[in-house]
Write a protein that binds this DNA or RNA. Structure first.
Length: 280
DNA sequence: GTTTAACCCTGCACGC
DNA sequence: TGCGTGCAGGGTTAAA
């Protein structure tokens, strides 16, 4: 799950759970549930910190969701690659790999489901958020107004790194993963292995625009749901951006712009898709 | 400073 | 049919 999917989830949560009070929290008995709340020593410690509290605000920092509670605590959720939050009803049976169930006083519940358990949930005091290293290191959000192309240009020039890993580096810009970094690079007409400090100012502008437009479009389409991936929104509905993808997962298929077959290569352990003709 | 690889985990596609 | 293997992916960390 990357920026667009997390942002869609944030908006859903804002509508659906802000103002609701948590009645009870169950951390399921299987071992992987403890992996999900790995920063807490015991199930009870986690549940007790949430029970009885009201959700007042939902923020996003990179790929992290921050749910503020009315006593100054914050529930932080990171989805890893297979995590989901799903709205449910008490009577409904729990899907496989459900690790946490939060029941609301106003009725209904919310389940955290995560087969691969790369994701996690934890609670911390809002005034101690600065001590959470992963959050503290997260770079500027490319959809923020404060993200200007001048600053982006300066940061690109300051680094000497290949574009693809740099775009995925959350300490450089936040929110991009494997899918959207490929899509952004295609939209910008740049190859994954171009060095960040070799870009002309025109190329920097193209990359900046590509990043903003691609991510905005993906949010508008409510994220990407691939066949082999189970991303769905809070209400269980898949996204629609997968039909808009230009390169990701399209190896061997004709480029939508020039008909040249899309190629793929392993970069830093991740498969990278690109058009050999349109990107240079 | 940058890059690579390993690690965590499950489900699925693949070949034999 | 059934098994083993490899891959997918986010982020951290240690090593190169």
């Amino acid at each position: 799950m990357e920026l667009p999917e997390v942002e869609v989830m944030r908006r859903d949560l804002e509508k659906e759970v802000v103002g609701k009070r948590i009645k009870a929290v169950e951390v399921r008995p299987q071992r992987n549930a403890m992996r999900v709340i790995r920063r807490h020593a015991r199930r009870k410690e986690f549940s007790d910190r949430l029970a009885g509290k009201k959700v007042t605000k939902v923020d996003r920092k990179g790929k992290y969701i921050l749910m503020y509670l009315d006593d100054g605590d914050v529930l932080i959720v990171h989805f890893g690659m297979s995590g989901q939050l799903i709205r449910g009803q008490k009577r409904q049976s729990l899907p496989q790999h459900t690790h946490v169930v939060m029941e609301f006083q106003q009725g209904g519940d919310m389940r955290y489901v995560d087969p691969r358990t790369f994701g996690e949930m934890f609670v911390t005091a809002a005034d101690e958020l600065g001590k959470v290293r992963e959050l503290d290191h997260i770079a500027i959000d490319p959809l923020e107004d404060t993200f200007t192309w001048q600053e982006f240009s300066y940061e690109l020039g300051r680094r000497a790194s290949k574009l693809k890993p740099l775009l995925m580096d959350q300490k450089f810009v936040s929110g991009l993963g494997n899918i959207y970094s490929d899509e952004v690079l295609f939209a910008a007409g740049l190859k994954h292995d171009r060095m960040s400090d070799s870009l002309s100012s025109q190329e920097v502008r193209r990359l900046y625009r590509a990043m903003r437009e691609t991510l905005q479009d993906a949010v508008r389409f409510r994220g990407t749901t691939l066949d082999d991936e189970a991303y769905v929104d809070l209400f269980g509905k898949p996204g629609e951006f997968q039909s808009e993808l230009k390169v990701y997962g399209r190896k061997g298929l004709p480029c939508r712009r020039c008909r040249t077959p899309i190629d793929s290569i392993k970069v830093a352990g991740r498969t990278s898709y690109f058009c050999p003709q349109c990107q240079s």
